[in-house]
Simulated assay, not measured.
Amino acid sequence: MTHLLPKNKVQTTIQRAFSSLVFGNDPAALTHFRGRWSPWLFNTPLHVVHQQAEQVYTFVLTDAETQQELYGFFHLFVQNQQGVSPLRASFGSFEVAEVVSHADFSVWLNSIESFAVSQGIKSLSIRHYPSCYHPARSSFIKRGLVRHGFQLSQSSINHYISVTSQPFETALHASERRRLRKCLQADFRFEEWVSPSAEQVYQFIAHNRQRLGYSLSFREEQLRLWLTVFPEIFRVFCVKNGEEIASLGLTVRVGKNVLYHFCPADNLAYRQYSPSVLLTKGLYEFSQQEGVTILDLGISVDAAGQPKTSLARFKRNLGAQECEKWQFERKIGISTKV
């Protein structure tokens, strides 16, 4: 049942009064407030609903006077007395307006933790978005969580390409330029797969992953849901040789300025051509047309989740830069503030 739980009013040190509200199983409560920014896709009410949690709490930081302005929010999914953010997505974490100070954030964290304790939640686990998405806010949130007693349980290197007015080839390593020329000379073409078949896309990716010894983090049913519910957000692009797919990429428009190349996969019969270079070029040029400034290539790990240096090197050769992607953990009731 959807319900509004008791409020905790917060008085800040910047002469601004905030209220902390919490909503049970009602992520759409966010739409009742005037937001100063657009949430990342994985934190939107529609995506939160489709993460299919048994219990999710949405914490809102709003003004105490009118309770109409949105200054921060956080979705906490609960399973087996464990609180996680996200449940089924690449990231969750906090989104906080720039007017919120560290003192404000700290008091808000106190109210969230107090509520979690009252619900019998024993731990909190938060996976943050790549720091390149919003470097200043990422540093702010990281510092606030660590000061509050969260442990930085994982820090992964994430690669991304800054999309500018310059051609894709400008930052491309010489070895990848040769591979790109080879693809173009073979008349491979880049195109979007319009109205893609979830079954065919999934089978292509799963076959590639199986041959490389990887497992997939999602099921075919999930892919079908993404393509059906978010057709303009989850899109599939291909490099083709005639009608045969040489390389495929599942992309996610995470935000207005961010395109996440979520799940690249190659037809290994074309490995000598490295068609993923042409795929990346196509995504870069698509991003230029769409006003995207960050083409997120994700982290580089092997089947065991360990850093994969060859994949990281390939992304650098594509012109990618590095940022960090963090995961934070905290046991409830243990005081480790610094």
Rank of each mutant, 00 (worst) to 15 (best):
L4F: 09
K7D: 13
N8P: 07
K9D: 14
V10L: 15
T12S: 15
A17R: 03
N25I: 01
A28M: 05
L30Y: 05
F33A: 08
R36T: 15
Q51M: 07
Q55H: 07
Y57T: 09
F59P: 00
V60W: 01
V60M: 05
V60F: 03
Q67V: 07
L70Y: 03
H75S: 09
H75L: 06
V78L: 07
Q79W: 02
Q79A: 14
Q81E: 11
Q82H: 10
V84G: 00
L87D: 04
E98Y: 01
E98R: 11
S101T: 15
D104V: 11
L109W: 06
L109R: 02
E113I: 08
F115D: 10
A116Y: 00
A116K: 03
G120K: 05
R127W: 06
Y129N: 11
S131A: 13
C132K: 02
A136C: 08
I141C: 09
L145M: 11
V146M: 13
R147M: 07
S156H: 01
S156P: 02
I157S: 06
N158T: 14
N158H: 08
T170M: 09
L172G: 10
A174W: 00
E176K: 13
E176T: 04
R177S: 00
R178M: 07
R179S: 14
C183M: 01
C183I: 00
L184E: 15
D187R: 11
F188L: 14
V201M: 02
V201P: 14
A206I: 10
N208W: 01
N208C: 15
Q210V: 10
R219Y: 04
I245N: 08
S247Y: 06
R253E: 07
N257R: 06
F262V: 07
N267L: 09
L268W: 04
L268E: 11
L268N: 12
V277N: 03
L279H: 00
S287N: 06
Q288I: 11
Q289S: 15
E290D: 11
G298I: 04
S300E: 06
A303W: 00
T309L: 11
A312R: 01
F314R: 01
R316G: 09
L318Y: 02
Q321K: 11
Q321G: 14
C323S: 14
E329M: 05
I332G: 00
G333V: 09
S335Q: 11
V338F: 05
